[in-house]
Simulated scan of single mutants.
Amino acid sequence: MRPLINQNEKELVRSLRQGDMKAFDELYYRYLPKLLGFAYNYLSDEMEAEETVQVIFIKIWEVRNTLDENRNFKSYLFQSVKNQLLNKLRNQKRNCTIEDIPEMYCVSTENVFEKITYKELEDTAAELIKHLPKAQQKVFVLNKIDGLSPEEIAIRLSLSKRTVEHHIYLATKFLKGELIHKTSLYGPLLLLFF
């Protein structure tokens, strides 16, 4: 049985200030389980949690003569552990290198660039489609956006298949020319869109 188990926190801190190792041990064993649980919550690693708590108790021993017995020692301990954890996490972030990042969290810059470029292309094309003559616009939208074949469009609009194909050709030629003229970034994606 621990000899100072019945002493209150204030008495233990007063004794600790005078260098009483038994008072230190009592405070250590009294708060160790909760502090370890607290640290483990942040780190999810028992060894790291234990090391963090040990560092705090070493610091407390080193500054024992400056401790305020009227201050809530338990709160002081938890705040010290929290600050130590934050410092540890901050230092880990500073030491993090690109090689430490798991592949699954890496974003391909090519993929992001493609998505942005494709979205810009899509917006520009949508705006250009509005400038097509009404018949070409209708045929082009039915074919390229709604996915209807020239035969289906011809039936739907009461036009010949040849006329529908001609409208698609003229609209596509106009849009490709305008898009290529507006920017060279869209070049590779034009093949995907048309």
Rank of each mutant, 00 (worst) to 15 (best):
L67W: 00
F38Y: 12
Y28P: 01
N65D: 10
L89W: 13
K173N: 14
T66I: 04
F57L: 12
K119C: 04
F113G: 10
S75V: 09
G19M: 10
L36E: 14
L192H: 04
D146A: 12
Q79A: 14
E50M: 07
P33F: 04
S158A: 14
L121H: 00
M104S: 15
E11A: 07
I145F: 05
A126Y: 06
I180N: 07
L189A: 09
T117K: 01
E99A: 11
K93A: 14
L77H: 01
L86V: 12
Y169Q: 14
L16V: 13
V112W: 02
G19Q: 06
Y118C: 10
F113S: 12
I145R: 03
Q54H: 09
D100E: 06
L128I: 12
F174L: 13
T97P: 01
K134G: 00
I129G: 00
R71S: 11
F57S: 09
L16K: 01
V141G: 01
R71C: 09
L32D: 05
T97S: 08
Q137V: 01
E11F: 01
R17D: 07
F113Y: 13
V164H: 01
F78M: 06
G177V: 05
N70E: 14
Y28E: 10
S80I: 06
L148W: 10
H131L: 12
K161T: 11
